[in-house]
Design a protein around this nucleic acid. Sequence first.
DNA 1: ACCTGAACACCGTTCAAGT
DNA 2: ACCTGAACACCGTTCAAGT
Lengths: 212, 212
Amino acid sequence: MTKAENVGMKYTRHTRDDVVDAALRILDEHGLPDLTMRRLGATLDVQPSALYWHFANKQTLLASLADRIVERAKPVHPTDDDWKGATRTEAYALRNALLAFRDGAEVVSSTLALGLGAGLPLNLLSNCLERGGFDHRTSEIAAAALLHFILGHVSHEQQRLQADSLGVVAEAVSTNSPDCDVTPQGLEAFEFGISLLLAGLELHSHATTKPV
Amino acid sequence: MTKAENVGMKYTRHTRDDVVDAALRILDEHGLPDLTMRRLGATLDVQPSALYWHFANKQTLLASLADRIVERAKPVHPTDDDWKGATRTEAYALRNALLAFRDGAEVVSSTLALGLGAGLPLNLLSNCLERGGFDHRTSEIAAAALLHFILGHVSHEQQRLQADSLGVVAEAVSTNSPDCDVTPQGLEAFEFGISLLLAGLELHSHATTKPV
DNA sequence: ACCTGAACACCGTTCAAGT
DNA sequence: ACCTGAACACCGTTCAAGT
């Protein structure tokens, strides 16, 4: 019997993972500003203070959310793409992972900004890059550049998604075709940014591996 | 007589700009988490509620701070650089402007993330790019890509600055030469990221202006 | 035009104590 | 191992009223 089916009992004790699950649901359904320790406690039928048995503080909890969100971007089967294809694929996987939860980009990016966890997305990207024969240091700062762009871009995308979902329909019914919920020009700008960075990197690799 | 010299009087009424000035001081000296409406009121010898005569809410105030921070990146005299040089210069000017205030990048980036103001940095960058003969749309999404990188990178830089300034000296006295407060490897990574994007753009322009 | 005073509806976090 | 209950020290914002 799963915990979700546990209907008749007075209460259930929770595990760390239960807390993360519940937090992710609140995040996705109501957004980051509504993800409150008090509300999370109420969702789990527990006092807010009980959460501090599982997590040292709210930031640590958010870091766990960030990890879970980014985990979706782990490649399932090893690809035999070249470094460029692999990196592009990974970038898109990260974008999808962030878009899968409301405010996902902001959670990951603020966790990164506080220096907690979030080594995972960096590793995913630099692993792809190292196939290109770049030295470790170059792979890492290039991965950071890619990640900064990805997080900034998707944050912006999610902000627009949310603004549109609110009553800000106002101008011209948003001027695009009826049934596109996944933002067409957002994807275009994403592709463009990734392409710029990858093209720059390729040029860099030619310059260093075959010196004039 | 400037307001700062006004010592003997009981109180002075404030203008919108006074509030922004005081807020910028708190930001720079104590950081964003300490920039509270209540603390800001206390600094100005005023009830917190008085601030709501000048600003509709805290976010609007933060947007004004963001504008002031970014204004430093306005070019003083028109340069005759090519688009690449001008854009690189502007990117560095933005970095310096953000670094000039504690948590500057976070203030600007969160303001941008909420869709308030912050059109300025985008315009500064896309103006430079348009010298390259890119069409308006390309200039804008390239400017957005640059800005995402800049904000993400400088945020990360400022987080490390702050972490270092706290007692987290711990490991190996940070392994770099004695008197460098302006983070040498931070600048290196910044240069690398900007170069990748500019190189990618140059390639793009060749591809579109001289088709095969 | 600019501010006070008081209130409202919240926050995150700590800690002794319970089971 | 996991939670309660109560408290502490805060938040942003509103609003009638004052000058």
